[in-house]
């Protein structure tokens, strides 16, 4: 099946307590490129291999967390059809005018029952410093910091994730690539709109609207090691890793930004096709599913969110 409709994650707006510290972290350490600062103080960043103007948006606030996660759709007319399908599913749709973020067209959004803002948009300007197109070199400017290739996915925590999964499947045409089933129901779900093992994931949690991590894709396992070296060199608060997930199979390291928002950098992961079955983990092997080498549950990773 060709990829149509919802294409991929595109925007993640993160609340930070200290913008100067956040810029040092995301630009100098993670290695995103600075795109610009808007009139309201929001800071726009991108990874070197992204064509779109920006992917990460930082907003100064008095508490940490994630304001919104947005997906790019293929065509402007898709916004109209998805608006109808979201309404038909029973959710309210809100509208964001073009230009609310510099270079981004109109967006539609809804607040899903896990308490998160999920938005769709079709149009965004191409970055000034975009990847080469004609006789393309690997990059325009050599990658720096952890050398992230793209903003890849987010993991969000909140209640009602069975309904959230159903909404993503029925209203937005996502598929569930992998899930964790416990005796009392769905604990976690990894949802994809592409051939990636996940484009967004949810874990059941009593408090709505919580943010577990935003993830950046790296080239390979060596790059995960390089990122780990940077984390130790600059005393970045490390959560866990380098290690590997059983779920999605990504090789990974987790750490926290200066406002306590968790970041992941990872490489690998399987290719998911729409004809593939949903892989499933149960309570007997969940430790291996979450961290394949440690094989045991990690309370901080499972419960600490912003």
């Amino acid at each position: 099946m060709a990829i149509t409709g919802v294409l991929r994650p595109g925007l993640c707006q993160i609340r930070v307590l200290d913008m100067a510290a956040a810029k040092t972290h995301y630009i100098d350490r993670v290695g995103l490129d600075f795109v610009g600062e808007g009139p309201d103080g929001r800071v726009y960043l991108k990874a070197y291999d992204e064509f779109d103007r920006h992917s990460i948006v930082l907003r100064q606030a008095d508490e940490s967390g994630c304001d919104l996660f947005a997906f790019r759709v293929a065509r402007p007319s898709d916004l109209d059809s998805f608006e109808q399908r979201i309404k038909d599913y029973g959710y309210t749709v809100y509208h964001v005018e073009a230009g609310e973020m510099p270079g981004v067209g109109r967006r539609i959004g809804t607040v899903i029952p896990s308490g998160h803002r999920i938005e769709l948009y079709a149009e965004i300007e191409m970055a000034d410093r975009h990847p080469p197109i004609t006789n393309p070199d690997l990059w325009t400017d050599e990658p720096h910091g952890m050398r992230p290739i793209r903003m890849d996915h987010a993991l969000l925590y909140g209640p009602n994730i069975e309904e959230v999964q159903d909404f993503f499947e029925k209203a937005l045409d996502f598929r569930c690539a992998e899930k964790v089933m416990l005796p009392d129901g769905l604990l976690a779900t990894w949802l994809t709109c592409s051939t990636k093992a996940h484009d967004i994931a949810f874990v059941k949690h009593p408090e709505p609207g919580k943010f577990h991590h935003v993830s950046f894709f790296l080239e390979d396992w060596n790059a995960v090691g390089w990122a780990s070296d940077i984390i130790t060199r600059y005393n970045i608060s490390r959560d866990i890793g380098p290690t590997r997930h059983g779920i999605t199979r990504g090789t990974t390291i987790y750490f926290f930004d200066p406002s306590g928002n968790r970041n992941e950098v990872f490489a690998g992961g399987y290719t998911y096709y729409p004809t593939d079955p949903t892989r499933m983990w149960d309570e007997t092997e969940l430790g291996k599913g979450i961290f394949y080498y440690e094989q045991q549950l990690n309370e901080r990773f499972l419960t600490v969110v912003t």
Binding site: T92, H95, V96, V111, P113, R117
Partner: peptide, 16 residues
């Protein structure tokens, strides 16, 4: 949750 973002309208989380 829906008032955190500048420039957007109020949304209702709940199913009608």
């Amino acid at each position: 949750a829906d008032r955190r973002l500048v420039g957007t309208q109020t949304a209702c989380l709940h199913r009608h």
